[in-house]
Design a protein around this nucleic acid. Structure first.
Lengths: 336, 336
DNA sequence: TTTATTTGCGAAACCGTTTTCGCAAATAAA
DNA sequence: TTTATTTGCGAAAACGGTTTCGCAAATAAA
């Protein structure tokens, strides 16, 4: 019933607590014989050390924080797997905190982290994050931080991103090559790095191909599904509606398909569609979806690897360690 | 740079640490005036209490553990949202631990939890879990546990499930009504409660409608994607292949669609297909997918609510608190 | 006025570890 | 044999909070 602790163990073995502790850490001070006795008794009594006591004394928690907007999202859940794979190897635990795209949540989470709950942070900012003092506070506290995917560009630390500009360019150029001349862009937030970089790629592709677009083709979606549906509907039933669309985030897939179905628009006949997405079902959609697929797992892994490097090597600076891992464009039925 | 602690605060205010602590907890012993001074200085110096120190003294961590097989899965990620929504309200944090369907991982995670890392556990067992001593150990340690979805039937504690039997029955009956007379069942593990209950519903429906099925129509999938593809292929290109399939888990969706495409089988023409799934994209697949959709968010919420009840009310027993929340069947194109 | 009670705070123990330091006994070197 | 050194362990002080208890001063009751 009651959890047994190191003192109980010491009593049981007629040893001091320090000896027990040292035996567990395989200290040279302790004889092999004693070590074995300790380990065996620990197993027998089902002793599990209290991690918080260790954290307290050792002044590190062996936890890293993951701050992301959502978990119900293919990109983020794969990234979690990447992060977790290296954390596990290092004997660390991950604390997954969800902002649900709220700035206030994000700020509160980072604030809490300053109490020593985690030794480092890997994050992807919320759509509402237009200001970064809460992040600077965290770093001023000595906590190493690595961004992945959605970064704060003004903050000097490692950022693991994908080639958003090039991908936006490639997606748009593909639509142009498939014959689209009125191409819409669905962004997610005006202050979000990825959305902006992808948008710039889109713009550049249009410019390079001499396509003059109406700004009405550019839609900034929100976090409200209903609101997005209205915006999409407006865009797609306007006179002179686009005949191609690039969407910057996965969660717009279903809304676009649905709205097209409701309006009787055929994909790819009336509208060609490319989406940034890690959906496993992309290939079996109706029609199958052309995607820019991000290296989610690798990005998570890389972010974690860097964070641990900075945790392990004192003096290691994250400022010059940013990495860009390319996404892959996969052509499918939605742009045939 | 350095984290400031309660001692620094005490020094700054010329008060004792106990006074500071009491001020934070709004103790009646402390005057309003002092409380305000403490709060204000804490804000100014950006003081954040160390949660591990509190945990240690208070003997509870204010963390609950979530043990699930995967996070890259619609059902589990939605369930996490449900759990998190109530944990947040209670001022608790969630520690999400992934077993990746490995029994050994599951056992290690539960073992670690016994050191006081969490105050209670919400879990869905791995496909490999055929034995439950590790769970009994956890409970013997005094940790309350609530199962959701994938339960261990032999363990006496609250289990939040959905109506697996009825859903399996309903899905199968639907296929029969749509004209199928050779109906396959794709399970995920022979020792998994949900898979078995859904299978029993399937069996009962066949019996009730006087359909005699070959056991070759029953396929137990594994955790190896390639292996599953082989099994599926065998099933679907056998002479006298099934003309209907019920799949017990979401992750079989893409393999089934792909294999059908490769073999030139038309859904729903050659094969009708129903899947237990929370995929948001079910409605825009080719063809759209008839699903049994589980109340994932609600199940998570309910599990968490029960766990907190047992954490808050001493003497509250979880043994008689199991709940069944019905799933909904949604007919779509794959069974037209 | 004397006694009882309340108010506001501080000292110190405690939570379960880790780590430093000290110290005997055993062994090796001189 | 005497003096270093090594080996194996224990006492006690941290880590950063919370909580119990005690104690003056202020206020209320007698």
């Amino acid at each position: 019933m009651k959890n047994i602790n190191i003192k109980d163990l010491a009593r049981e073995l007629n040893l001091s607590v320090s000896t027990i502790s040292k035996a567990f850490h395989d200290s040279y001070e302790i004889s092999e014989d004693t070590k074995n006795r300790v380990l065996e008794t620990a197993r027998r009594l089902n002793y599990v050390p209290n991690p918080y006591a260790s954290s307290l004394r050792g002044r590190r928690s062996k936890n890293i924080g993951i701050v992301i907007p959502e978990v119900a999202d293919s990109f983020f859940s794969l990234a979690i797997n990447g992060i977790e794979s290296v954390a596990k190897e290092k004997g660390y635990h991950v604390l997954i905190c969800l902002t649900h795209e709220s700035f206030e949540n994000e700020r509160n989470i980072l604030k809490e982290f300053q109490g020593g709950r985690v030794d480092g942070v890997i994050m992807s900012v919320s759509t509402e994050t237009s200001e970064s003092s809460h992040i600077l506070d965290l770093m001023a506290n000595g906590l190493p931080l690595v961004f992945f995917d959605r970064v704060c560009e003004e903050i000097e630390t490692a950022k693991i991103t994908t080639d958003d500009f090039e991908s936006g360019y490639k997606a748009t150029e593909h639509l142009i090559q498939q014959g689209c001349d009125k191409i819409g862009f669905l962004g997610i937030s005006k202050c979000l790095s990825i959305s902006n970089r992808r948008f710039e790629g889109y713009q550049k592709a249009l410019d390079d191909h001499g396509i003059l677009n109406d700004t009405k083709y550019i839609v900034h979606c929100t976090n409200e599904t209903e609101q997005n549906d209205i915006l999409l509907r407006e865009l797609l039933q306007s006179s002179n509606r686009p005949n191609g669309i690039v969407a910057a985030v996965e969660k717009l897939t279903t809304p676009v398909y649905r709205t097209c179905a409701e309006l009787g628009l055929n994909i790819p006949g009336d509208l060609k569609f490319v989406c940034f997405s890690n959906l496993e079902t992309a290939s079996i959609l109706n029609p199958s979806l052309s995607t820019i697929t991000q290296p989610a797992f690798e990005m998570g892994k890389m972010a974690a690897a860097l964070l641990f490097k900075s945790l392990e090597k004192t003096g290691f600076s994250l400022t010059k360690e940013s990495q860009v891992i390319p996404s892959s464009f996969i052509k499918r039925g939605s742009t045939e």
